[in-house]
Write a protein that binds this DNA or RNA. Sequence first.
DNA 1: GGTAAAGTAAAATAAAATTACTTAAAGGAA
DNA 2: TTCCTTTAAGTAATTTTATTTTACTTTACC
Lengths: 407, 407
Amino acid sequence: MSNQWVGDNLSDVKVKNRSLVLRLLKKKGLLSRIDLARITGLTQPTITNIVNDLLSVNLLKEVGFSDTRAGRKPILLSMNDQAFYIVAIHFTRRGFSIALTDLGPNILFRRDSHYSLLENIDLALLELQKEFIHVLEYATQSLSLILGIGVSVPGPVDAESCTILAHPTFLRYRNLDLRKYLFEYDLPIFMMNDAHAACLHETWSGQAREAENMVYFMVGEGVGTGVLVEGKIYEGVNRKGGEIGHTSINIFGPRCVCGNYGCLEMYCSTYNVVEKAREIAWFGGNGYLRAVLEKEGKLEFHHLLEGARNGDSTSLQLLQQLGQYIGIGVVHLINLYDPEMVVIGGQAALAQEFLENSVKQVVEERLLYREYVTPQIHYSKWGDEVTLLGAATIVLDHFIAGDLGRF
Amino acid sequence: MSNQWVGDNLSDVKVKNRSLVLRLLKKKGLLSRIDLARITGLTQPTITNIVNDLLSVNLLKEVGFSDTRAGRKPILLSMNDQAFYIVAIHFTRRGFSIALTDLGPNILFRRDSHYSLLENIDLALLELQKEFIHVLEYATQSLSLILGIGVSVPGPVDAESCTILAHPTFLRYRNLDLRKYLFEYDLPIFMMNDAHAACLHETWSGQAREAENMVYFMVGEGVGTGVLVEGKIYEGVNRKGGEIGHTSINIFGPRCVCGNYGCLEMYCSTYNVVEKAREIAWFGGNGYLRAVLEKEGKLEFHHLLEGARNGDSTSLQLLQQLGQYIGIGVVHLINLYDPEMVVIGGQAALAQEFLENSVKQVVEERLLYREYVTPQIHYSKWGDEVTLLGAATIVLDHFIAGDLGRF
DNA sequence: GGTAAAGTAAAATAAAATTACTTAAAGGAA
DNA sequence: TTCCTTTAAGTAATTTTATTTTACTTTACC
């Protein structure tokens, strides 16, 4: 949290304008100097100066010309994604991934591990340290070009102390300080809850590129949200906001592990539909799901997807019901945050074709201000990689904001 | 919504720094030049310049000296609340108020009307126009010092077109353009939902002065919230956010007028407790409430308060139950927004002594991240005037931000 | 060659920072 | 009490720096 009482000076203006130009080029792609001048309201000479500076540090490149009716053709500029590198780390409930990315972010090199092979979190983190070294070795030619380490975690973090406060897979552990394992080269570490990180990635590289105010609704085994307010992720004072999964939608319902009753997450998660599917498979006779369970010895979310694709009505119904609960979540999010758009992500987004109608219907019937506007509802096109890319995007976001002092 | 793609220049810096100094002096009260320099990180000469400029337009005043151990005594500065005036208008469910205020904001002159005297909204607005002229006549010596008109409404507004989109008392009416009635002197008009306006006032002049991130939970006949994010009210893209009153806390409950089921507002409002009280009074035998109902011919929220003060256990129980529902709302707000503090306002705040324990207990039991931090819960000390003062504060906020081009 | 548009060089402008100074008060010594 | 030293606030003049203004060059279509 930057201090709100600090005044501006001229170099702040410089950094902000450079940041603005970079942000524009990253978000909108190819633009000429004159485009930049027109969009920003800055004068052409100023833009020329800024562009020259950024070209000289290799952050921009000139890539051909634009077609115009008459006059000199504008030189198109684009951000040079290869100018710097980022280390991205993503913890899931089952393992972690670590990668080297460029500013795309595109993954250049990646290593994955699974906790199942490991006895406890200490071993997992030692493993992480090893893989981190591998990544650094891969990048050995360009270590000074690594901007920092971005980490996304499915749980609460303390970004200031680089600490994972709690992790759903290692419930007994508290306050894991990552600096102990990632101290090489003194790279800055940025951490975020994975839903927030995925949201950030969706706004830089996904369907929400145009949005300055949006809500990302991640529905997987758990539920999480990321909220973008005026182009910035709103995490809350202690970075523990956006927990719509633990608001009651049924105060007379069963108690949730969090202490609250009938939390949204208890109804609206892939964990919940899969549990229901298992129940039906066991007790519900001879359907498709029973067959899967008997053949595979287990039942997972992708089986429901396959079932729905093969016309199994139980699978379809379960996904539609999930859609209704997602719809309720979406209604709440819109009533609360009034965003430009909602992006639904996580495993549930893979089932878009089966649940989008249910979502839409619930929203159309229950949204408070539906007579004025209903925000668009998009489904993330990013698969599992979104949280790893999100981790990289945390660093990208700081870089482009000028926080890393690189321009 | 200001355009996020516009670049900064030097005069922006000037306005921002002047704005910062004014904001500091308004929020923190008395400060010396050296204090300002230290807090803002600006140099002493820069602060001197800014202060001189603001003194010369009469926006600041020097008010005595500060006590220090040694050396020259710092001259204490303070904002001059009498430098400009504001017209504040507040619509309630039952009438409207219009006032002239200074920058305190303190009410200098006030007129009130009740819809009950009027047949429809057109007549009410003609009445408003008349009262507006009265206010202008009162301010006739200093018309050029009026910064603008702030309007707070218990319902959705379109601030850009100065339109009340809907009003709970005039349900048939839509899209009331206030410019038709307030065109004299071409004063700028700023509108907001009343909960947001009250929140703003609480952050400028109430218990949330120190907070940059807070949630104001207004519980009256309806429920509304105002959310402050990094010192700015977050209203959402269409200024229709913060509607926690219309999130379901019981999706299997009865349908709400909004289309949703079991909305928080159906449980957590003074309207709801009073209804319950009426039911008990009618059907529940011979208690205190029955006596009130028979004697007064009606039963209102203040009767419950009086009942509780006089030791009536039914009144007390009802208020405690309201406290539990408020607690649920507070849990949701904290889980969602992770604020520094929650301020509870509206009629319910008057019952603080009877419901605060219930609120606290629910929060302590159900909050997701209670093991890390629990934000403080405050109760508004402002009475009914908060929304009228809030209306003035909308203009004050724009003024201090430098939006009105007055410095 | 005329014209339209992109892009740049040099001077002007405006804001804050730096430097060196003045003003003011507290506290101790004569 | 008076004078002197120390501490700190506040300011004037100058410098620095980022943008703007103005005038110019470059480029390409017609």
